[in-house]
Design a protein around this nucleic acid. Structure first.
Lengths: 254, 254
DNA sequence: TCAGATATACTCAAAGTCAATCAATATCGG
DNA sequence: CCGATATTGATTGACTTTGAGTATATCTGA
């Protein structure tokens, strides 16, 4: 058992967010307490955990935060249903903007067989997904990479988007609220999404029912700025009626 | 038993994700510890495992990926060697342009631990590789996705590149020829690479020896436009002398 | 607040491991 | 055939890792 190996196992054990005790690790890994302490000190130095008396607590980054991959599998069936319905709006020959996000990635997958599409996106995954489709021309906006979402934001992205004219935008969001509008966690993302909205003729908002009522930090636009909302059937009927009354077309995936 | 064969067996043994001990490998493969250590050093350089005191651990993630087989080849080891040498030119705090390509991707990997870098690239893979590095700001050029290489080309890419000023460019190429210059298969890529050249203070051409004498369809620039060429030691000595005479600095990876 | 129980930092010596060098052998290209 | 290059294993001194021992620090419950 090597020191490095031991440290990996310690981290592995903390992945669930639980604290570890020196004595436990000691028996589990079959080394003296001195060695365990040395390991913990080292891992603390790397910023992976915080030591306490008798053991250690995992640090933010060490815990299993929902990665992109995990988010993508969470309620995957619903996302596919929403994506199918949304993709049905697209006619061959159109040009589309696809926002970054797991639902919009599903839309991209649904569009693979289509002919003569132009897709503009600020998401790696979407561009990669469509890059080998003969009937689809993919334009990436460029911009700075936003840490964990792999979305591109910033002036470069905005400028590219400002210079295009798309038939349709498929917009993702973290929060949809009747009063606070469509929201997202960062100003930078909000700015990009606003530019997308300006460059598209029709705005299709895609969001599952869990987004309703949530408010994230930065407002993108009022909900009425969207023309269509595609969501699932657990979407609150009251809110649905209210949105319809305000002129949105609602499409409910089954 | 050839060194290559031995290394393959070592990797074979680590496939399950288990650690290996120098002493064990030593008896199993019937060679001295010195040789085993040399093998492990080499494999570590290629990014296939992590050495520890007494043995080695499989590198997290890499072991079961499809890219694993490719990484185990000799040409990949050469690329890594070139990349290490090239990455050594970079000082913390600089801004770089990284062209799309397998060697430049390796350069990106070598830069992960650096601080305060700005990296501009037209390659997905490079952007993804560096996106989670706290010390590195990644700017993607944007542009159209070129089918199989996943490089971004076209007016959007060129405009983004034209608007930046980088300390260094690491440029890949399909062909390097004394008469025909630096070449690449398509006009679109050539145009992007030319823009990169214009936006950087120092041009570092990275190319293994197989590129010498090859001529691809589109010329990017004469070889003399580069300031430094990083290559491997199988690079033809005559050509090397000729290039040095023309003012290029040659760096030969061992 | 204090005493007793734990947990910790520190030093040290032993065991094991490593890098560097060198000479011997094997292989390659002409 | 010869010189150049690669590969190998032995040797040496230096480095890491380890657990025990000891003095200090921290926690807990009264």
């Amino acid at each position: 058992m090597f020191p490095e190996e031991r440290r990996r196992r310690i981290l592995e054990q903390m992945r669930s967010g639980e604290a570890v005790k020196v004595a436990d690790l000691c028996t589990q890994l079959g080394v003296s307490e001195a060695s365990i302490r040395r390991d913990l000190r080292e891992l603390e130095r790397s910023g992976l955990l915080a030591r306490t008396h008798g053991g250690a607590l995992p640090n933010e980054g060490t815990m299993n935060e929902p990665s992109f991959a995990e988010k993508a599998t969470r309620s995957h069936a619903e996302k596919v249903a929403i994506a199918r319905l949304a993709a049905g709006l697209v006619q061959d020959g159109e040009s589309l903007i696809l926002d970054a996000g797991t639902t919009t990635l599903e839309i991209a997958r649904q569009l693979r067989q289509r002919k003569d599409l132009t897709v503009i996106t600020n998401a790696f995954h979407i561009a990669a997904e469509l890059s080998d489709c003969p009937g689809i021309k993919v334009l990436v906006t460029g911009g700075e990479v936003r840490g964990n979402t792999l979305a591109l934001v910033g002036p470069v992205a905005e400028r590219t988007l400002a210079d295009v004219n798309a038939d349709r935008l498929f917009l993702g969001a973290n929060g949809i609220d009747l009063k606070r509008g469509i929201t997202t966690p960062t100003q930078a993302e909000a700015a990009v999404k606003r530019t997308m909205i300006e460059s598209a003729r029709q705005i299709v908002l895609v969001a599952d029912h869990t987004k309703l009522g949530k408010v994230a930090f930065a407002t993108i636009a009022p909900v009425t700025r969207a023309h269509v909302l595609v969501t699932d059937r657990q979407f609150d009927p009251h809110a649905a009626r209210e949105l319809t009354a305000r002129g949105l077309q609602l499409l409910i995936a089954q």
